[in-house]
Amino acid sequence: MLDVSLLVQMLLGALLALAVYLPLRAGQLSLATPGFYAIGGTVAALLSTRAPALAGDGELYPLSSVLLELLLALLLAGALALVIGGPVLRLQGIYLAIATIALVEILRVLLLNSSWFGGAVGIFAIPQPFDGPEGYLGAYGLLLALVCWGCHWLEQQPLGRAMAAIRDDELAARCMGVDTDRVKLLAFLFSALVAAAAGVLAAHYFNSWNARQASFDASITSLAFVVLGGSRTWLGPVLGGLLLTALPELLRPVGDLRLIVFGLVILLGPVLIPQGLIPRGLINPKRP
């Protein structure tokens, strides 16, 4: 049941969960992740299908071109995150969540209606840098390991502690001299970069790309990954992303009931295990 393509999607789920987790670590509920994911995917899809210079001579699409797409996608997503992050992050709580949902919806409508981006049908025949799903498994594994390492490192740094301080009490953190605007903006930026990188690989992996990738459902699903996995350490979202992406596939035998079971899991999860699968105490027993 656990075939390679499912494993690839599980790793993708874990990456998207980390992208939601990063701003949440600084207490900011941003649901803009699918938007940046869509930007990454669109950049990759456009460059690899419209720029013949990148195609190379070999049978497979050159990895160096994928890296170039990655670089451009990160630059674009990062610049956009910095530009919109400033005004958007002034909003608090549910207002921020809804503003980011609005951003994702606006982006989706723009992608859907612009023929340059393939419109409603999307962009097809995106060239393959690997000759099988195993290659993507390696690439996603590497990216996930890198992001996990980054999150772990961040949690030890003053910046990571400042993020945790804002989460616990923004006003108190500001009184203690934390530049809350800057810290929140950085968390938002990191999130955008992770989502865009995941999107670049996803466009190649799925072989086609369309506006449906940026949807409200995707926003909330990745939030569910974080909440069920636990939002106190990076391991929680990773675990939540892996398990919850696999769940609907593993439930395939129950047929039509699988989405109902999925709904039950995300309904009962927060009620039964409010701290998520990985509460903070489990990882670092010294801290309460």
């Binding site: 509920l29 909330i220 569910a224 039509d256 999925f262 899991v265």
Partner: peptide, 19 residues
Amino acid sequence: AEPLLYLITSLGAGVILVN
């Protein structure tokens, strides 16, 4: 509980209802 959790549980209820 945290307001965040309500978003997830109510979404879960919606997913169940629609399906």
